[in-house]
Structures are given as structure tokens and as C-alpha cells.
Amino acid sequence: MRFFKRSLFTLLSMAGLLLLVFFLSRMTGDPSYLFLPLDASAADRAAFSQLHGFDDPIYVQFGRYVVDLLNLDFGTSLSQQRSAMDIALEAFPHTLTLVSMALAIAFAGAILFGSLAARKPGGMIDRLISILSLTGASTPDFWVAIILVLIFAVSLGWLPTSGVGGPLYWIIPLFVLVLRPFGLLGQVVRGSMINALSSPYVKTAYAKGASEQKIIFVHALRNSMLPVITVAGDLAANLLNGAVIVETVFGWPGIGRLMIDAIMQRDFAVIQASILVTACAILILNILLDIAYVVLDPRVRHA
């Protein structure tokens, strides 16, 4: 029941999103000014508009868009003259690999460091890790990106400045993407771990003679994962969207950069297709999160 309700809400909000994107993108201006030569005549522009259906009233255009959508036709890119969906689907895997790797690193690091910090709240290690994660959580990523490029790519010349290629190309973009999620998740893991470690069932585990590793990573960790998963889901959605900056800075051919380019070119079909793909990804992410809850907490299963 809860699941159906949530799916319905997600679908509704997705429809709302597409509606908004459709009209907002058309408010950016007439694409013919970007696609035709600067000295093109009014007649040329009219012909261009007619060809792509921009001369119809906007509600007619929207109706056509919806009908096409239902037929799984996502429109054609103005700039590349091929299916907008193909373009979006080609770009998306680049973003997905980058984001999921960043998240995996941030998650693993946060669990390790957060748990270490929670062992002795207020202790030396805790304070050190807190400083580290707070710094991570509060440093603007575009600034870090530029500084890192300046040091490691420009001055030292160890790493490439941008683009895709071997493993070296991944280092700076990943580092920039990991920083914030690691900091935030580390704080959440620490907090909920301290909570779990002071709970009565941990006392039971000590009374059974369980080792400290076992108590932290078996008894307390799974209980402290629920709030962490919630925040991680939120961060993952943010990363998918926030990849725009990193992809632009590092020339990463992902969906974020595609979106920016499409907006600059008023390539409406590509904007719509890439937003649709991102929204679907976030929808799937939420479903995965729900499944993770059920797997982790038996009380959710039987509720």
C-alpha cells in the first residue's frame, strides 16, 4: 500500500517536472537565433520555426509532446539531428559510473571513519575525524576542483586537467565528488553509531563475550544504518544533479554537461530527454532505498 502510494506520488511529481521543463525551456528564447546564421532573414526564421513546429501555439506543441511521449518518441535533437533519447542515454552511463563510484567511496569511508569516531566520543580520534568530515562537508566543490587542477594538473603536471581516458583522469573528479558526501555521511554515521553503541542490546552483546569489532560492525552498524541510508539516498540524488558542475569543469561527457550544452543551445528535445533520464534514475534509486530499508530492518518488513 505504502509502496503503491509512493510510486503514484513519484509519477505525479515526474509529470509535473516534465510540464515545468517543457514550458520553462521555451521561455529561454527562439532557437532559430542560435541555429541559423546571424544574417538569416525573417522568412528563413519562419521556415525554421515551421519545420520544427515552433510556430504552433504552445499548448498545441505540448499536446504533440505528450502524444509523442506516449509513443515513446522523445523528439529529435536540433543540433545533432538524431534521437534526443539516444544522446541522453549515451551520456548517462558516464555520469552513473562517476557518481556511483564516488558514492561507494564516500559510503565506505564514512562508515569506517564514523564508526572509529563513535568508539570514544570526544576522544582524540573522534575530534580528528570530526574536523576532517566537517571540512569535507563545508568546502565548496567547484573551488576544490579548480585548486586541485591548479596544483596537480597545471603546476605539477601529474594529472590531466580534463577529459576521459585512463585511470588518471578519474582521480580529481572523483575526489571532488567524494568530499561533501563523505563529510556529511561521516557525521551521520558517527551520530547514529554513538546512539546504537549506547543501546541495551549492545550491553547484551558485551555480556555474551562478543569482541569489539563484532559489536561495532555486526550489532551496532546494522541498526545505525537506517538514518545513514536515508541521507545517502538524498546525497545520491544530489550527486546525479550536482555532477553538472564537475562535468563542466572537467569536460566529462556525462548527462550534466549534456544538459548544460542543450540549455545553451536551446535544444529543447535534449533538455527534456536528459531530465527524463535523470528523473527515472532518481525514481529507481528511491525504489532501491525502500528495498534496502526492508532488507536492513525486519520491523519495516512486518509493519
Partner: peptide, 25 residues
């Protein structure tokens, strides 16, 4: 000390709901 806990000395607590781990069978 750990070797003794659970094998030679054991404890039964007051509130079994709080003292059992909710996420393991």
C-alpha cells in the same frame, strides 16, 4: 575477560525488548 562473559558468567536483563537486537533473528 571476554572469554568468561557468556560462558562462565551470564546475565538476564530486565527489559528483554530493549536488550535483544531488533534486526537479527
Amino acid at each position: 575477560r571476554r572469554k568468561i562473559n557468556g560462558s562462565e558468567i551470564a546475565i538476564i536483563f530486565q527489559d528483554p525488548l530493549a536488550h535483544l537486537n531488533p534486526v537479527y533473528s
